[in-house]
Each structure stands twice: as structure tokens, then as C-alpha cells.
Nucleic acid binder design. Structure first.
Lengths: 136, 136
DNA sequence: ATGAGTGCAAAGACTTTGCACTATA
DNA sequence: TATAGTGCAAAGTCTTTGCACTCAT
């Protein structure tokens, strides 16, 4: 996660051992995680620091929030760093990012129709991913 | 909210005074509300009951969850009772529902492309509503 | 009359804050 | 070395649960 550490430094934040550890932990997790899970893997790092770091990483778009259907929240490393949407598997919990200009266009169209000044939007798709669909 | 009371009864739930009160309170609020706000207006009804009732009403699609950009949650009476999306004003907090088959189609298209079996989806639009846009 | 529903208070889960200490830039 | 960042524990939020009581059907 070299680019992430750079982004931290570039923004004027200090690159500390705990922050490195959190970044490494996030890099090694290949699925959306909760603060709890992240914190478990970092026994030497205070829980508050994990919370603070994830919050910071969210602001820097290094990590993004993944809202689950039941209202709970997970986080995931932002692979694209750009705007995207999620495919969230209700079986295995995997999260896939995707971008689609025509989806964004449809959203913008609706905003325009309602004389609404769009600042941002989210779209989450819930269901079963390919492998869970074919396995069961 | 006659149809709501009917929906409660039809589903086998009892129509109690607290539930009526919660339904009336929701009917009289014209904006998305928090449990806190709802509960404040119902001093004689236990907080737990408000939570339990709102949860029940969500299951019956009488009330829908409105996730805000900052991760907090509000609820709103489902006007359509059908699938829809939200336009959420970051200034006045108003929430407008809308439906758009072509938006849904774009979402379904993405699911199909990813071999993802779509069960449900959400789309939330954040920005400034018409009146907040023209007023300021 | 009988079991769904309620109120209260207590317990839980999750997150933030205060503060003295540490370590980066 | 000056100050951002940390750890710990305490304090908040917000929500759920246990349990005896009540009331709709």
C-alpha cells in the first residue's frame, strides 16, 4: 500500500507505526471488514486508534464504507479510488466494485428531472455472487 | 393511515393503542425522522416499543429506511409502498421518493454482466433540493 | 382466556472523548 | 522540540433484551 502511505504523507499526516499497521492489515484482508475484525488482528494497537485511522482513511478515499442491507456497516479498501458502486453477496459477503457511466447518467437524469442539484450518490446491489450462485 | 392499520391486521399483528399512536405520529411527520424524534412526540410510549414498532413497520413496507450520507439512519413513511429511490437534501433534510424503470434496468444490467443474481438494490441521491437550491 | 404486545430498567454493542504520554517531521 | 498521534479507560450513543404485567382477539 505504498501509494496509500504516500497519500497520507502528501496530505500532511504523519506516517506512524500504528497507521502503517492498519494499512497493512487492510491490504491483507481481501473482503470488507468491520472495525472489530480489523482490531482483532492488531492486538497491540488501541481500538480508538483503529477507529480514528479508518475514519481518516475514509476521508482520504483510501477506504470506503460499504453499507449492508441490514443497516450494518463494513469497510473496504477502495481499489479504484474513484466513484463506483458495489455488488454485495448476501451469502459469502464478498463485495465487488463496478463503475457504469450509463447508471450514473440515469441517476443524474433523475436529479435533473426533479430540479435537484446532485452532489453525490450511492448505489448498492444485493444478491448472490457468481460463485455462490453456481456452488449452491 | 387506515391502509397501514389494515396491513397490520391482515398480517396477523394486533392493532394496539401504542401501535396506533406510532402510526399516527409517523403520518403527521412530513419528513424523515429518527427514532429519537418519534419517541419524543410519544412520551407515554416506551422507547423500546417505538423501536419494535418501527422495525415491524419496516418489515411490512409501511416505513422505509433512509440511509444518510454520514452513515446515520432515518425512517420515512413509504408513500408508494413500492420499490423506489430517494433524493436526499443535505440542506433541509427533505427526502423525495422517485421510481425510474430505466435506472432499475441499468442496475439489473450491471448485475447480469457480473453474473450476479440480484435480490435487491438501493440508490440514494444526495444534494440540494429545488427549493434549497433556489433559496440560497 | 391466552398469548401477543408493552413498559421499564438493565444490559449490550459500538463509537467517541479526555488526558497524559510518545514519537514523527 | 513542537505538536500530531497514541493508548487507555471512561463516557456517550443508540438499540436490544428480560420479565412481569396488560389487553386485543
Amino acid at each position: 500500500m505504498t501509494d496509500s502511505t504516500e497519500r497520507l504523507e502528501d496530505t500532511g499526516y504523519r506516517l506512524t507505526a500504528p497507521r502503517r499497521a492498519v494499512l497493512d492489515a487492510i491490504a491483507s484482508i481481501n473482503r470488507p471488514f468491520t472495525i472489530e475484525e480489523l482490531s482483532e488482528g492488531l492486538p497491540n494497537i488501541g481500538r480508538a486508534t483503529v477507529f480514528r485511522t479508518v475514519k481518516l482513511l475514509q476521508e482520504l478515499d483510501i477506504v470506503c464504507r460499504v453499507p449492508l442491507e441490514d443497516g450494518s456497516v463494513r469497510y473496504e479498501r477502495s481499489r479504484s479510488g474513484r466513484h463506483h458502486h458495489h455488488l454485495i453477496c448476501s451469502v459469502c459477503g464478498s463485495v465487488t466494485e463496478f463503475s457504469d457511466p450509463s447508471l450514473d447518467a440515469a441517476i443524474e437524469q433523475n436529479a435533473t428531472s426533479a430540479s435537484f442539484e446532485l452532489e453525490s450518490h450511492s448505489a448498492e446491489l444485493y444478491g448472490r455472487c457468481d460463485s455462490c450462485r453456481t456452488t449452491s
